[in-house]
Design a protein around this nucleic acid. Structure first.
Lengths: 385, 385
DNA sequence: ATGAAAGCGCTAACAA
DNA sequence: TTGTTAGCGCTTTCAT
């Protein structure tokens, strides 16, 4: 029982609720048939003075200003239909009371959180943090926050992250798939929804989702042709896992050029690695054993290229005289190596920026057109090739 | 006017609202004094079939199961006071209807978002992305999301980010200050609040905020002593901006060892840089001109150390024979250099992990004890010193 | 074991 | 120009 006492007959029993008026509960005492009201407002700011737990709300400002909450909302939102005086007073009050809007409440009503979600395999790989930086920069400029979740290259974490983010936390999702991810049901179920999704860098083919990509195929073509023109005959290629579209595309570019220059393709010159130093070194070693005449290596990343260069130098193999090495990504490390790394700059940062721009556009315009954009890169010639 | 028609007298005028019953608006027609009800429920799922805009809510499940929303909530939350059958039915229903809870609504009620906010100067600096990775990893394990905002080393962006995050979006804030940040009013105003704040790596001194720090002073001592024992006499130190506690601490460690080994301190051997390659090279050049007998450089980071090594090699200065170089941070690049970089491993990842752990503990336990934790590092001896 | 209802803090449609 | 009210989707008392 709510333990309400009738002010007339002073009874606790048979008191029934009878609607609410102005945030006050009306009661009806069945004993004496008396209707009365009792203020329901909790005693606010009742916590100890030590911790000012309670944020000031519009309610508080309204009370202080002697206006309604709606008026406060209007003032703070700079709506037109409000008295300039009132508005000024309210804003000053809000300021002095150190008012901060509750974004959750705002978002719940407006159905927009001004937050982008990004799912990325790792934060510790240079290209990913560079893309992220591009995403973040564009988003921040547009007044959007970014929630970042890492999948750590695990499929189940990617799935869990998507689930978690798609529950109204974000206005748009940017995703770069984990290596493990080979099925895309977890993405497909979100496709019809209000929240736009864009894939970048590593994408799933065949899904109706917009994509922002590096120019992998033509990048591989440029690199391969460059090496071919330098007279290389045996060009090995270090690739990522077979399933990645990126891997396929680079391979395609490589093959295109072999065909163009009428070089016979030898599948033994391909290696698929998992980005670990160990797998990189193992691949290089295999090549060295099988192909004494090996004269070039195209690496999947600058980091791997750095490992390759270090390894070859240990073996006293001259770079670029005996073997030319080319990387992908134009990471910082390339310039620090000796010899300095020749690399294909995939414009990683731009990829992030473009992805961010595209999703913001979709969020703001409401359009869900499916587009695929390829960010052009270029070869940076240094010393290693 | 709401344009409500009285079903009895078919009039539109003089219809007054008269309370709400079961989500239906009751009206009273003053013309014929007839009370009637009109369903207020919007026609749900009324959007075109192309886009299933509407997420299924508890309301929908309740309707489908023929129970109240409260019961659905109880079932999905695995509360005890619920029939096992009912619970099972509801859960199956929720599953088949592909229900996703609205986190905003949940958070609004429970006042907890299961999200950490992190403010960091940049994503493209190795140590920061490593710390972030540590934070993210611990947070994810505990079921927390991470919102990352970069200040880009700008004070005003740090301030704006803090404001934005502290508006109920997050349960805890981890902050690593921008270089520009020299006043801390923007932090202080949030100190009394419900949301705990922790500083890491770069911290403000004198504020009642918990801190997770690298062992900078003792790290600098270890490095300096190591060089001293190798016989170095002229040890230059590349430091960050003077204001950073980190800078002060490393300097202190350096001075401690000079005193211990009775070496006279020369302030010209210090340089404060802004992390740009240009400022690093300029400092090194200055030293080279002023101190022909220079025999060691302690660098602020491995990245700067890499730049120094590259520069010295260009100048045909032998490392470590003529000049020894030691870095800080144990970044990936150190192992790729020739000679390989000797560096003080500050255990950056652990710093992130510890910060994450501490704030999660404060969030969960509610305690706000102010602690300062220093993460121990160690010297990694390679070839450059 | 279940339902009714209040309310988290806000926006917006509508009424005055 | 301002106030009233409903409601966003959920949790949580209280009453049954």
């Amino acid at each position: 029982m709510p333990r309400v006492k009738c002010p007339k007959c002073a009874q606790f029993e048979n008191i029934h609720k009878a609607g609410i008026v102005r945030n006050k509960q009306r009661y009806n005492c069945k004993n004496c048939n008396y209707h009365f009201i009792q203020d329901k407002k909790k005693t606010k700011n009742s916590s100890e003075p030590g911790r000012n737990d309670k944020q000031t709300s519009m309610q508080d400002i309204a009370q202080a200003a002697g206006v309604s909450i709606a008026t406060v909302s209007r003032a703070l939102k700079n709506k037109s239909d409000i008295n300039r005086e009132t508005s000024k007073l309210i804003k000053e009050l809000a300021n002095s009371m150190n008012y901060q809007p509750n974004i959750l409440a705002q978002s719940l009503v407006t159905r927009s959180t001004h937050t982008l979600g990004v799912i990325i395999p790792s934060l510790e790989t240079t290209i990913f943090s560079t893309m992220l930086s591009g995403i973040q920069e564009v988003a921040a400029t547009a007044g959007y926050r970014v929630i970042i979740c890492t999948s750590n290259e695990k499929h189940e974490r990617e799935v869990a992250n998507i689930q978690a983010l798609m529950n109204n936390m974000i206005d748009g999702l940017l995703i770069c798939h984990s290596i493990q991810t080979k099925t895309f049901e977890h993405l497909r179920i979100h496709l019809g929804k209000r929240i736009p999704i864009i894939q970048f860098y590593r994408v799933a083919v065949g899904l109706p989702i917009s994509q922002i990509l590096a120019n992998d195929e033509s990048g591989a073509e440029v690199v391969t042709e460059y090496l071919l023109k330098k007279g290389c005959k045996k060009i090995a290629v270090l690739l990522g896992p077979k399933e990645l579209s990126l891997t396929q595309n680079r391979l395609q570019g490589y093959l295109n050029m072999l065909r163009k220059y009428k070089i016979k393709f030898d599948p033994k010159l391909l290696a698929h690695v998992d980005f670990s130093q160990e797998s990189v070194i193992r691949s290089v070693n295999n090549w060295l054993e099988q192909f004494p005449e090996l004269d070039a290596v195209i690496s999947i990343s600058d980091k791997s290229a750095a490992q390759i260069i270090t390894y070859l130098k240990n073996k006293k193999i001259k770079i670029p005289q005996k073997i030319r090495v080319v990387g992908f990504g134009n990471e910082f490390v390339g310039e620090m190596l000796a010899p300095k790394l020749t690399t294909y700059d995939t414009q990683t940062r731009i990829i992030g920026e473009e992805a961010s721009r595209l999703i913001l556009e979709q969020i703001i315009s409401g359009s869900r057109d499916i587009t695929t954009k390829t960010v052009p890169g270029h070869l940076i010639i240094r010393e290693s090739a």
